[in-house]
């Protein structure tokens, strides 16, 4: 039963690199979009807030598969030319998870205590200085654990690229290994699942390192968690929307003595 395992591993590994590449590129795009649109949702300009909100709602409200199909098959009709599947996959991963990430950034910035904002006013800082020097550095610490979840969800989401024909890890199983050895499906899929588990652990280790760095920055201990696996809550699930924690969101609401 196990004599073919080395072959399975080497064949799967061919797709592993595409999975890794798509995940890393997707994370890079998602991270940039998260900050751009997360901060845009906190803008003082209503137009900017509305545009950011529309992006977030559309990409969170539809399904990743719809988005893959749309960019792969519908967009070319509007655009006039086709994108290669891997590029489509990376774009969709980045845009989809960037929308979830934007909510993380917004929530983290709003969770910075209002007192910190008042401290910056008492020191006459400009709005840009307040955000860059005081609010964002503190918000970063809050963001790391939910971003860890999000990036693992993104890794898992990269498996869907197989639907538009990207020969990543899952594709290697479904289209290469299974047709050859359908009687050993259990072994094949276990090998592939373990590859994904390994990648998820690597992401978590990386994020733990980041979290320690970020926590040191604000001079406090990182949150305690059981192990490299253990993470907070759900991840890609919609955040309980518009739940302000008495932070910057309440700036416009005045508080009494």
């Amino acid at each position: 039963m196990f004599e073919n395992v080395p072959e399975y591993i080497s064949t799967a590994a061919d797709g592993l690199w595409i999975t890794v590449g798509a995940t890393v590129a997707g994370i890079a795009i998602a991270a940039v979009l998260s900050f751009v649109f997360g901060l845009a949702m906190l803008s003082r300009l209503k137009t900017v807030r509305v545009i950011a909100r529309i992006y977030v709602e559309i990409w969170r409200g539809t399904s990743e598969v719809v988005q893959l199909y749309w960019v792969m098959f519908a967009l070319p009709i509007l655009l006039g030319y086709r994108l290669v599947p891997l590029l489509v996959g990376i774009l969709v991963l980045g845009l989809n998870f960037g929308a979830y990430g934007a909510e993380i950034v917004r929530g983290a910035v709003q969770s910075v205590p209002r007192a910190q904002y008042e401290g910056t006013i008492a020191l006459s800082m400009t709005p840009a200085q307040r955000m860059r020097r005081v609010i964002l550095p503190q918000a970063l610490v809050e963001m790391v654990p939910p971003f860890n979840n999000l990036f693992i969800q993104l890794l898992k989401g990269s498996a869907l690229l197989t639907i538009i024909g990207v020969s990543e890890l899952t594709h290697q199983g479904k289209e290469v290994l299974i047709p050859r050895n359908v009687s050993e499906a259990a072994t094949i899929w276990t090998v592939i699942l373990l590859f994904y588990l390994l990648l998820a652990i690597l992401i978590t280790m990386g994020m733990r390192w980041l979290e320690r760095r970020a926590a040191a920055l604000v001079g406090r201990q990182p949150t305690k968690r059981d192990s490299v696996f253990a993470r907070f809550g759900g991840g890609k699930d919609p955040l309980p929307a518009e739940q302000s924690k008495g932070g910057l969101a309440d700036l416009r609401r005045k508080g009494g003595e």
Binding site: A115, Q116, E118, G119, A122, L123, S124, M125, T126, Q129, R133, V134, P137, Q138, L217, V218, G219, R220
Partner: peptide, 28 residues
């Protein structure tokens, strides 16, 4: 021209003591 000392201090936890004191004089 106005400074304020708060009930809850409101120091910036992401900066060391020295930077808390120099940040605004340098940047503002």
């Amino acid at each position: 021209r106005i400074g304020m000392v708060f009930q809850q201090f409101n120091l910036f936890p992401n900066m060391k003591v020295m930077q808390n004191l120099t940040e605004a004089p340098v940047r503002v």
